[in-house]
């Protein structure tokens, strides 16, 4: 008998009587008086910085003023052809990326995370390997909790996606928090609207 068959047979034999799934009552979930204020306060608490822009044009203007000598990748308004070529770039060639810009699909007020899927990332390693990360998010896309998040997005729509919350961090040495473990050393969240 294959290990698969053996394992499944044993599980079938040993599992207890079927019990039902719970009913998750959304009425019992925490509510926030102001989702945006809550979202901003958590992002700041977990090491991110938040900037507000009335429109995306204002943000674009701001980006254009940034110094040009650094190696930045802006995915916000990339053509399909640019995306296709970026998707094939290896980590070795992305290692020096200074700042990378992405458009988040949804924000979660309770934990300050932003959902980025493969489509938004263009290249899976880019939001992790860049030194500094900028995530752009429409204010109206902030939901209260993770329950609402999974209701609003299909996490299996693309091959890969992540709820990204703050810059990479570690506290593995004496529980001292250090920002910038392996991934980005900073996270800027630009809220539009």
């Amino acid at each position: 008998m294959s290990s698969r068959a053996e394992i499944l047979a044993k599980v079938k034999q040993n599992k207890p009587t079927l019990v039902p799934l719970p009913n998750i009552d959304f009425n019992d979930l925490i509510t926030y008086p102001d989702l945006i204020t809550q979202f901003i306060s958590v992002v700041e608490k977990i090491g991110g910085a938040v900037f507000l822009y009335p429109t995306e044009e204002d943000l674009a203007k701001n980006i254009s003023l940034e110094p040009n000598e650094t190696y930045n990748i802006n995915t916000l308004n990339m053509s399909e052809a640019e995306k296709l070529s970026l998707s094939k770039v290896h980590s070795l060639d992305l290692e020096r990326v200074h700042t990378a810009y992405f458009r988040g699909k949804l924000g979660v007020a309770e934990n300050g995370s932003i959902w980025l899927d493969e489509e938004a990332m263009v290249n899976r390693v880019l939001p992790i390997i860049c030194e500094h990360l900028v995530l752009v998010l429409d204010k109206n896309l902030i939901v209260p909790t993770m329950h609402h998040a999974y209701q609003n997005i299909d996490v299996s729509k693309t091959g890969y996606g992540t709820f990204l919350a703050g810059p990479s961090k570690t506290a593995d040495i004496e529980q001292s928090l250090v920002i910038g473990a392996h991934g980005p050393r900073s996270l800027k969240v630009c809220l539009i609207g």
């Binding site: 977990i46 979660v108 300050g112 709820f163 703050g166 991934g183």
Partner: peptide
Amino acid sequence: PITTYSSH
């Protein structure tokens, strides 16, 4: 409130 990366 959540880990930095909850990757799917």
